[in-house]
């Protein structure tokens, strides 16, 4: 479980986050949605400690991460996996080495155990026989899968994904979304996904936070999001023709 309270963040004199609270539960895919530039990525970075919030705190299973000492942070970070927007695979390492890297650094496992674990997660994300390929030799969708494998290889309890399906075709995007959801449920991970893709929202949104200009305007799930009364959220949702059609169909059914 991840709790965050009153997260505030400014750059120079520009306030990006105006105090955001929320709770993300384990075994569920938690979505942060909103238009471009509302501070979704900044919020995610504040949670994993890539940015320091000016105020507020983030708690992982009740332990304060934001004000923790270096060693406690290190301990909590062992349980955090992150999938980056551009996958962020290490260019100089092949697929297998990329996936094994967290184990090399964070554990004392033997080489065979590490290899076995890496092969297990690679298989889990649907990748086989590309162990020796370099990141530059595989497609964007495969890179995302390798990124997911690397994020969960050390039995992470928390998985953060920043726009996991940006730059992918709609079919691959749905495959990646579903993979994230399956893994979340299978390994009881607390997953946080930043997205502005309405397909993902409807497909995998267990719990959803809608952000608007650095504030949380709405909270709910994929069942009740379409019936929202928040005008900003309505605008966000129905900018997508497909969702418009879905709403019209629902309304027709009611009549």
């Amino acid at each position: 479980m991840i709790e965050f309270r009153n997260i505030k963040k400014s750059f120079n004199d520009k306030t990006v986050l105006h105090g955001i609270d929320g709770v993300f539960r384990s075994g569920r895919t938690n979505l942060i949605i909103g238009t471009s530039g509302t501070g979704k990525s900044v919020l995610l970075k504040c949670m994993v400690g890539l940015l320091e919030p000016d105020e507020g705190e983030v708690l992982f299973n009740g332990r304060d991460f934001t004000h923790a000492t270096r060693n406690v942070r290190r301990e909590i970070r062992r349980d955090i996996g992150m999938l980056f927007q551009g996958s962020a695979l290490f260019d100089s390492k092949n697929v297998e080495q990329n996936v094994m890297f967290p184990l090399d650094i964070l554990t004392d496992m033997s080489k065979e155990d590490k290899l076995e674990r890496a092969n297990f997660v690679l298989q889990r994300v649907g990748l086989e026989n590309i162990n020796k390929k370099m990141p530059s030799e595989i497609s964007g969708g495969m890179k995302k899968r390798v990124g997911i494998a690397r994020a969960i290889v050390n039995n992470s309890k928390y998985l953060f994904c920043d726009e996991p399906n940006s730059g992918l075709d709609p079919m691959t995007a749905i495959l990646i979304d579903n993979l994230i959801k399956e893994i979340t449920e299978e390994f009881d991970i607390t997953t946080v996904v930043v997205t502005h893709d309405m397909n993902s929202v409807m497909e995998i949104g267990d719990d959803i936070i809608y952000m608007y200009q650095g504030q949380k305007l709405w909270e709910g799930n994929s069942q009740n999001i379409l019936s929202t009364r928040v005008p900003e959220l309505q605008e966000f949702i129905y900018s997508n023709k497909l969702v418009q059609a879905l709403r019209d169909e629902q309304q027709n059914n009611k009549i």
């Binding site: 890539l50 996996g81 992150m82 927007q85 551009g86 260019d91």
Partner: peptide, 17 residues
């Protein structure tokens, strides 16, 4: 520089390195 802009440095930091 390339590692920095492609978030590879962030990936290391998230791992606590």
């Amino acid at each position: 520089g390339t590692m920095k802009i492609s978030e590879q440095v962030d990936a290391l930091e998230v791992m606590g390195i």
